[in-house]
Amino acid sequence: MKVLSGSLEKIDRRETLRYLGCNPNAGAPEGVEEAIEGCERELLSAQSLKCVYDIFPVMREGGTLDLGFAKTDSRDLKKYLEGCGKIVLFAATAGAGVDRVIRRYSSLSPAKAAMCQALGAALVEEWCDRVHAMFTAEYGANTARFSCGFGDLPLTLQRDIFAALDVTRRIGVTLSDDCFMTPSKSVTAIVGIKDDI
């Protein structure tokens, strides 16, 4: 099990616009760019990027997938992990500070709140991309990220992920009874590592 931390210097503008429901190809609409820049500065100074991950073996028993930390009957995940003998399981977060900025604006400025939401989502995704690239460098070819709630993989698997990676203790992300994470800009995912051919 390893814990990583990091920080980003900017947040992908195209992704941000996409989350905001704008057409990313058209660029930021007039007046919006400036406001997004202000929010971006605040989020970047509030970010506290953390990640915890570990490697688990994949065993197949009939229709069931044994991931070492939990078993699941998810067909979608099974299909996804074809040709993978191991997975990287990780949890990543942009930190509580980002939620605080969003919270501050949610009552004061709906426009800024929406922008911070979008920026926060883009921030944690980009952090996941970084971490993922590192997995690729370390473990070789692998799959895209697969998270609870995708396809038929149940959200309740989050509980097992949290126990397996000791997520709350390692990176400060907590899980509600409904399997929602706080800080909200957090991700857990499975990356399948391809067997050497």
């Binding site: 905001l20 429901g21 057409n23 997004i36 709906p110 426009a111 929406a114």
Partner: peptide
Amino acid sequence: TLFLPQLLMSAE
């Protein structure tokens, strides 16, 4: 022809 952020900024 105009998106959420602009709608909100106009509202403010």
